[in-house]
Design a protein around this nucleic acid. Structure first.
Lengths: 206, 206
DNA sequence: GTCATAGGATAGAGCTACTATCCAAGTGGT
DNA sequence: ACCACTTGGATAGTAGCTCTATCCTATGAC
């Protein structure tokens, strides 16, 4: 398929495809001749990935480039997953760097779930986040962490299993990034429903 | 205090304060004379709210204006909370409107938690979100919803209790919006840690 | 009297993500 | 052979958004 067809299939305008090519998000097609290039279904899947990371997860071009570069360089899937995590957690943005920190909350989760007690970006991010919430007087109880982490334990297992399954690398990034994002949105919506429910109950007589 | 001092206290440049005044995010100060205006601590707290909604929650000026207008118009706190929810859930953005829809998952949560069975924006948003996740082959199990909603039930109770407590309206919006956002981020980070933990466990011998 | 500040208006900067135009070279279909 | 169409590459322009800067006149504090 050539550029125009790729555009029609994915719904992305040709000018934008060229832009992504220039920016290095989309690898160049196979040059058949000097003025013809052939694009594969992987290009289509890459375009879908770009759209999803932009519009759903809200990443910018530079962040998407980092991830797609890794995918194109063929780094191991596990390493790729770690990069996706760092990006979605916004650990690559300024003002979010912290050394290894520990909090009772972070330790508690690891113990509760019997997770390996090893430092990681994710753990530092969690500890920093819990600290932030407590500083803002938003309580993070052990019960809360227990309930959350219990639910997430099973999900993470599936996610990691998916990294070993063969398949399109674009889909791996898509699943990981979009999955993380959608789970966090799910909580947002559940919390809203919970608040609405409590409000109804508390004020129904008013 | 006058404009310059307000600027110094909050760290927001005077030009930006003028901008927020123009945009109607910040109510005008009390005009002492034709060329002097006095700003109260509420103005400072409003400025902090604006900053937090912009930089932490990621709302745009129009969204912030909607919320601050309601606050300035003195709508009931419960109504204000509902508006904050709609905004943080991005229910006011195009392409997110749906009628009343029901899913087994949404019904299950309400039944599990014994929440009132009434339609609401939050419930529709939840149902739409669950549908989306299932379409993307991301399973949303009853156990997951049980664990999440159980944890959130208690939090929501506190949140709603906070709406009746007296205090600065700016703080109410701040707490609600930032609180929702931080809870969803907490899940993001926990999921990352869970994934990292499972990855270590699964690959430690490789 | 002088200097700083107010409100009001208006313009422009800086960023990001496109979008449009032009080009010369080359191709596929008839 | 012809010609509409496509390619990569270059370059410039647009659109949306959030500020930021400048200029203005009136006026108040000291």
């Amino acid at each position: 398929m050539q550029l125009k067809e790729l555009s029609e299939r994915t719904g992305v305008p040709p000018a934008s495809i060229k832009f992504y090519l220039r920016e290095g998000l989309l690898p160049p097609g196979q040059a058949v001749t000097a003025t013809r290039a052939r694009y594969s279904p992987q290009h289509a899947s890459r375009l879908e990935l770009i759209q999803a990371l932009r519009r759903v997860v809200g990443l910018n071009i530079a962040q998407i480039r980092k991830l797609t570069r890794l995918a194109d360089d063929g780094v191991p899937r596990l390493e790729l997953l770690a990069a996706v995590q760092r990006t979605v957690l916004r650990l690559d943005e300024v003002g979010t760097e912290h050394g290894d920190i520990r909090t009772p909350a972070g330790d508690a989760v690891v113990r509760l779930r019997n997770w390996p007690d090893a430092p990681s970006d994710a753990r530092n991010a969690l500890n920093a986040h819990v600290t932030l919430m407590e500083n803002l007087n938003i309580p993070v109880t052990a019960e809360l962490l227990d309930a959350y982490s219990k639910a997430l334990d099973a999900i993470a297992d599936l996610d990691i299993a998916a990294t070993t399954a063969p398949g399109d690398v674009n889909r791996l990034i898509m699943t990981a990034a979009v999955g993380m994002h959608l789970h966090s949105q799910l909580v947002l919506k559940l919390l809203a429903l919970a608040q609405a429910s409590h409000a109804i109950r508390r004020y129904k007589d008013a």
